[in-house]
Design a protein around this nucleic acid. Structure first.
Length: 520
DNA sequence: TCGGTCACGTA
DNA sequence: CGTACGTGACCGAG
């Protein structure tokens, strides 16, 4: 273990037996795993370290919540109450504004961290403290139960800590590298939908159908009233609600078409291109573990790019895109984390809904709805019968889900398979916790997979993470190796993550020039 | 200027 | 069949 602190041109280093002011060369040469307070705040991009322990990321894994600043991280491993956030406490503002004159003692008499410790501590000492926090975090992780029936290798929560740290590091790289974008193609696609983007021109054909009726297309209440005047009475004007009325009146069809264009104009139009694309790269900000379940999130609309725009995401000269997505990942995750042997047997198949359908005595579409309804806590009665059959066929999986739902209902926090604390809080909604243990576990498996893939790439790069999909940008000569890597990495990851469960995970992998091609 | 609502894209 | 996220336009309160 080598803790690394970068502060300006100075570098603080700490190993278990000493702490010193060192150089970047020493980090580059270190065979050790690196400990960082936060990958996002540590400029190590040129080094592309292989293994880091990100104290902020592991803190969020262990304790949930949104805080991941050093004060909160330190307090948590020492069993102290979380300190006020900078901004909540004006004395912290004073500390931040006052010039740094020499170093302070970072640990106060009551054991808490000095509010400005990150800036005002001797870098070597600050690195040594990082190492101490790492030890305590690992100790806490080792105290958690390992949920696997046949543990293999290090305890699963410790493995998850490394994977979550790797994801934090990957987010820094994703922000830096960006997604390769064919700018001219993007402009063509946008122009095909909204022309030059003129608002009046876009609105005119819809307004013409309303003859003089003064309607604000961007105001749902106004649209709802206009529809009512045409005899179409709907509780709201969402597109799926209006879809059945497409034939009822030309306005509905025109309005839905207009909405598509309006979405492009406002969210994915010329302004968006100008704001987020530079030198052929589309960039957003990435977060490694967000929301209740700890999924990765991205800004700049990277996670909700309309399918029509995906042909603009294209490999650069001499390069190819390798895209891979996990097949039926959530039901497979459920089979693994719940330990349901019957569901695990179904997950041995390429398509697990086929054996589930056989087991339930229903057709495949019904089986799929039943499985999804079970995982997400269905409320309508459509799949009620199938759900009762699920209960009969897969009682262990259903009990696991019920347990999470019950915990959520009474406001009891839950932990995912990999050890993430999902804070439910008081008055929690049961469905939320029920979903979080599946979605969150899937996110952990995905990140563990992504981490292995990242480390196995030569000159290639991970350029997009999309919940169950990875997009790689690789030199053409490395494409075949990347395909093999994606499969091998999933094998290796699931072998320990789902050890003893008998669940098989599958990836659909393809080599393409444009993201839009060859979607499985 | 702000939070809330509606709407919609993705998984 | 549901959960989750980010984004943007509009409304009404302050």
């Amino acid at each position: 273990m080598l803790a690394v602190v970068v502060r300006g041109s100075e570098l603080g280093l700490a190993s278990p037996d000493r702490a010193w002011i060192g150089s970047l060369d020493e980090v580059a040469a270190a065979p050790d795993r690196l400990v960082l307070w936060s990958a996002a705040a540590t400029p190590l991009l040129p080094l592309r370290p292989r293994q880091v322990w990100d104290l902020a990321a592991v803190h969020k894994l262990l304790h949930g919540g949104r805080r991941d600043d050093p004060g909160a991280v330190w307090a948590a491993v020492h069993g102290l109450p979380a300190p006020p956030r900078a901004g909540d406490d004006l004395t912290l503002l004073d500390a931040a504004l006052s010039p740094v004159e020499g170093f302070v003692e970072p640990v106060r008499a009551d054991g808490s961290l000095h509010p400005d410790a990150a800036r005002q501590t001797d870098p070597a000492r600050w690195a040594a403290l990082a190492l101490e926090v790492q030890r305590r975090q690992e100790q806490a992780l080792r105290a958690l139960p390992d949920p696997r029936p046949v543990p293999s290798g290090p305890p699963l929560p410790v493995v998850t800590a490394w994977a979550e740290s790797a994801a934090a590091l990957l987010c820094v790289e994703l922000e830096h590298d960006g997604l390769p974008l064919d700018h001219a193609e993007a402009v063509r696609l946008i122009a095909a939908t909204i022309g030059d983007g003129d608002r009046q021109a876009r609105d005119a054909p819809v307004l013409a159908l309303l003859r003089g009726d003064d309607v604000d297309l961007r105001n749902p209440a106004s649209v709802k009233d206009a529809l009512l005047r045409l005899g179409i009475d709907v509780p709201d004007t969402r597109s799926w609600r209006l879809e059945p009325y497409r034939q009822a009146h030309p306005l509905v069809d025109a309005l839905l078409t207009w909405r598509k264009a309006e979405r492009v104009a406002t969210t994915y139009g010329y302004g968006w291109l100008g704001q987020h694309v530079r030198a052929g790269r589309l960039r957003g900000e990435w977060t490694a573990a967000d929301g209740g379940a700890g999924r990765m999130t991205a800004s700049a609309g990277l996670h909700s790019l309309p399918a029509e725009l995906r042909s603009a995401v294209a490999a650069g000269p001499g390069h190819l895109l390798v895209r891979a997505d996990l097949g039926q990942v959530e039901p497979r995750v459920l089979a693994a984390v719940s330990g349901d042997r019957g569901l695990a047997r179904a997950a041995a198949e390429d398509d697990m809904y086929t054996p589930v359908a056989r087991q339930l005595g229903v057709d495949r579409p019904t089986a799929k709805v039943a499985v999804l309804a079970a995982m997400y806590g269905q409320t309508s009665g459509a799949a009620g019968q199938a759900l009762r059959q699920m209960e009969q066929a897969y009682p262990v999986a259903l009990a696991y889900l019920r347990g999470a739902e019950e915990a959520g209902r009474v406001g009891r926090d839950v932990r995912t398979h990999g050890g993430r604390l999902v804070r439910v809080g008081t008055g929690g909604v049961g469905r939320y916790a029920r979903n979080a243990v599946v979605q969150g576990a899937a996110a952990e498996l995905f990140k563990a997979w992504a981490a292995v893939v990242r480390n196995g790439l030569g000159d290639g790069r991970v350029v997009l993470c999309l919940h169950d999909e990875l997009l790689l940008h690789v030199p053409a000569r490395e494409a075949d190796a990347a395909v093999a890597l994606l499969h091998d990495a999933l094998q290796a990851t699931s072998a320990h993550w789902a050890a003893g469960s008998g669940v098989r995970f599958v990836a659909d992998v393809g080599v393409v020039h444009r993201w839009s091609e060859a979607k499985g």
